[in-house]
Write a protein that binds this DNA or RNA. Structure first.
Lengths: 149, 149
DNA sequence: CAATATTTGGGAATGAGTGTCATTCGCAAG
DNA sequence: CTTGCGAATGACACTCATTCCCAAATATTG
């Protein structure tokens, strides 16, 4: 797959500058964590992550996930299973939604027609303003059974 | 508010028959649990529930929430805060979505235009069938800050 | 290189949620 | 209305995902 390496280094550059802006260091461990998430291409749990790169220490991964979530670089997904899922944030991955399997807990990314997307966003914005609610982002998940379950 | 008592007893009747169909009993404790959720009119956490009715025992509430979720009477909502939220399931409450406050963890119910709702549902169904995914229900949440935060 | 601040990682601590089990309850048959 | 029995209860022990702690290691600044 040509271009992949470039894409990954773009991501690293972008994340590095975001972290620098907030006085955080983009260390080797954080870089590896981001690489694992970027290469997986789908949301991962903590066990997924340390399995993919066993050099990563559990406590550091949890701590770094937290730092990166706070920095807007990683997104936390609570799907109801035992473990929380994490993926690169939307500025890096583009806006999308999820298919969540209620049997195996797996999560897959999906994309909606931009037409439908805009309608939804508009509706939600209207509703929010009526309640004095300040929207930050929305999530739309389809729960069911994946092809393997 | 005229009609409320009737609405509550309708709910109890409906739940009673659903439980009976699955060889479960609609005991006093379960009835109280359902009453608390019905009267709150918004998703509640376990502490919310036992605070609202201190006669309810924590372990029994957890166990009964599980039974009622399995019976399709209560819906479990994982919003990312410390505690899971619960509310009456959609057959009883009607289809709706949520405003989730990322400061205080509070959740409020909202309703989308049925037009938008159908479009979303159609899109999701299409996407799901393309992946061999069997849809059960979707969730659409708007995350942000509520009026009080 | 020295001084300073951030990060690391192993293990202990926390706490939401689940399991256990003796007691109690609810229902149905007599 | 009693009795019998499987389901439900509740106090408490336990599990395990996640967070906390802190001494050692590493990065940045002067």
């Amino acid at each position: 797959m040509p271009g992949d390496t470039d894409h990954l280094s773009e991501i690293h550059l972008e994340i590095g500058s975001r972290l620098a802006r907030q006085d955080h260091r983009y260390t080797t461990g954080r870089r590896h964590l981001v690489s694992v998430l970027a290469q997986a291409g789908q949301p991962m749990t903590l066990p997924d992550i340390v399995t993919a790169d066993p050099d990563l220490a559990q406590s550091s991964v949890y701590r770094n996930l937290d730092v990166l979530v706070r920095s807007g670089v990683i997104r936390r997904i609570s799907a109801g299973g035992d473990h929380t899922h994490f993926e690169l944030a939307e500025p890096l991955l583009g806006h999308h939604h999820h298919l969540i399997c209620i049997s195996c807990g797996g999560i897959e990314d999906i994309h909606l027609d931009s037409e439908v997307e805009m309608l939804v966003d508009q509706s939600l914005t209207d509703i929010a303003s009526r309640s004095g609610f300040t929207p930050i982002h929305h999530s739309l998940d389809l729960h069911g059974h994946c092809a393997d379950c």
